[in-house]
Simulated assay, not measured.
Amino acid sequence: MQITDMLAQAGGLQSIARELEIEPHEARSGAEALLPAILGGLRKQAQGGGGGGLGDLLGQLGGGELMDQVLAPQKTDVAPGDAVLGQIFGSRDVSRTVAQSASAQSGLSPELLKKMLPLLAMLVTGFMSKQGAAAAAPGQGGGLGGMLGGVLGGMLGGGQPGQQGGALGGLGALLDANGDGNALDDILRLAGKARG
């Protein structure tokens, strides 16, 4: 099952649609366009952190509670989502570049996608934290990293695990200019050019 479907089943996409006052199909389209960049950023963190790095990071950023906040009926405080984006992207310029690129793919406005990004980051971080806690046996640090690889492998139906070029699918494949399977380095270069 694709992560977009998992988030929809958990009620996350409906919560984003309600919060941003958009149609559910728009929330899904925006999520499908933004998720490869968010997952690519998490993957970069996991590769750089070693051991239980990703699990530790998800816990530090708020863990499963982040998902609960988005699913709650009251308006979501997006500050934790901005913190997640800051951790995985490093700058607002990258978030803007991701929103612009996702806009070209989804047909939704960059302004709407910029509002969606922190909510989606909270949803994904919380979801992965809950899934990782359920899946990882005590003493196994690699559970979340393996799960992230599996999610990326099935992302938007693109590629098989291990075929990194297609694993990011959609936006990730479009942004992965150097074909290394991780679009984040290419996004960072784009942001650098936009800033200059």
Results as ranks from 00 to 15, higher is better:
Met122Leu: 10
Thr97Cys: 06
Pro138Met: 07
Lys75Met: 07
Met147Arg: 06
Gln105Asn: 07
Ala99Thr: 05
Leu108His: 02
Asp82Phe: 12
Leu120Thr: 01
Gln131Tyr: 12
Asp93Trp: 08
Gln105Gly: 00
Leu144Val: 15
Met128Gln: 13
Ala83Met: 13
Gly142Tyr: 10
Val98Trp: 01
Leu108Pro: 03
Gly107Phe: 02
Gly86His: 09
Leu71Asn: 01
Pro80Phe: 09
Gly139Cys: 08
Ala121Tyr: 03
Gln100Asn: 10
Ala102Ser: 14
Gly145Cys: 10
Met147Gln: 13
Ala134Phe: 14
Gly126Arg: 06
Met116Arg: 03
Ala102Ile: 02
Gly81Ala: 06
Leu71Arg: 03
Arg92Lys: 13
Lys75Gly: 00
Ser103Gly: 12
Gly143Met: 06
Val151Arg: 06
Gly64Lys: 13
Ala102Leu: 02
Ala121His: 04
Ser91Val: 06
Ala135Asp: 15
Phe89Tyr: 15
Ala133His: 12
Asp68Ile: 00
Ala134Gly: 13
Phe89Gly: 09
Gly149Gln: 09
Gly145Ala: 11
Gly63Ala: 12
Gly149Lys: 03
Ala121Met: 04
Gln100Cys: 02
Ser103Tyr: 00
Pro118Asp: 05
Leu119Cys: 04
Ala99Gly: 05
Asp93Phe: 10
Lys115Ala: 13
Leu113Glu: 07
Thr125Tyr: 03
Phe89His: 07
Ala72Gly: 01
Leu123Gln: 03
Pro73Arg: 01
Ser109Thr: 14
Thr125Trp: 00
Ala136Met: 12
Gln105Ile: 11
Gly150Lys: 08
Val84Asn: 07
Thr125Gln: 07
Thr76Trp: 07
Leu112Thr: 15
Leu85Met: 14
Ala121Ile: 05
Ala104Ile: 05
Met147Ile: 08
Gly142Asp: 15
Ala136Pro: 10
Gln69Glu: 13
Ala99Ile: 04
Ala135Phe: 13
Ser106Phe: 01
Leu113Ile: 11
Leu123Ile: 02
Gln69Trp: 10
Ser91Phe: 04
Ser109Gln: 11
Lys114Thr: 11
Gly81Leu: 07
Lys130Asp: 15
Met116Cys: 02
Ile88Thr: 06
Gln74Asp: 11
Leu148Gln: 04
Gln105Glu: 15
Gly132Ile: 05
Met147Ser: 08
